[in-house]
């Protein structure tokens, strides 16, 4: 008899348990989703073409690193005054590269990666050429923009 008495309560208890579990899950999702979306980093808007200096700030046959959207960009000026700009981020493990006037090449000090002044990886671990950016000169101002 006692078994019969308890029988109807078991499904009811199961139902209540499931209802509590489902409600708890719904509450957790309702809190968790907005929090997760909030925490996820926002894409940084590009500021577009960036003025990085005057032509005379860049001596002939040298390289200088400037910041574009907080990212290091290596600006090379050849002996004939022509500008080229590369992302100064090594394609191996993302260290910051620099121009060596002595050897006329771009070097990554971290793991001895070497790029030509055309940005092509020529020695060491880098797997790809450096990313190139567009340089334009307008009324004596040097402007860098994404390719």
């Amino acid at each position: 008899m006692s078994n019969d008495d308890r029988a109807p309560t078991a499904p009811r208890r199961d139902f209540l348990g499931m209802a509590v579990g489902a409600s708890a899950t719904a509450v957790a999702a309702a809190i968790g989703y907005p929090v997760a979306r909030f925490v996820e980093p926002r894409p940084m808007p590009s500021s577009g073409p960036t003025l990085v200096g005057k032509v005379e700030d860049f001596a002939l046959g040298t390289g200088k690193t400037v910041l574009v959207d907080e990212k290091p960009v290596l600006l090379l000026r050849s002996a004939d005054g022509h500008f080229r700009a590369f992302s100064a981020i090594c394609t191996h493990l993302q260290c910051v590269v620099g121009y060596s006037a002595e050897r006329n090449q771009i070097e990554c000090p971290c793991h001895k990666g070497v790029y030509s002044v055309e940005g092509v990886n020529i020695a060491g671990p880098p797997p790809r050429p450096l990313e190139e950016l567009v340089v334009s000169v307008r009324e004596g101002s040097v402007i860098v923009s994404e390719a």
Partner: peptide, 10 residues
């Protein structure tokens, strides 16, 4: 200074 090349042997 993000403009400086990384340190050698970091």
């Amino acid at each position: 200074d993000p403009r400086l090349p990384s340190v050698v042997g970091a």
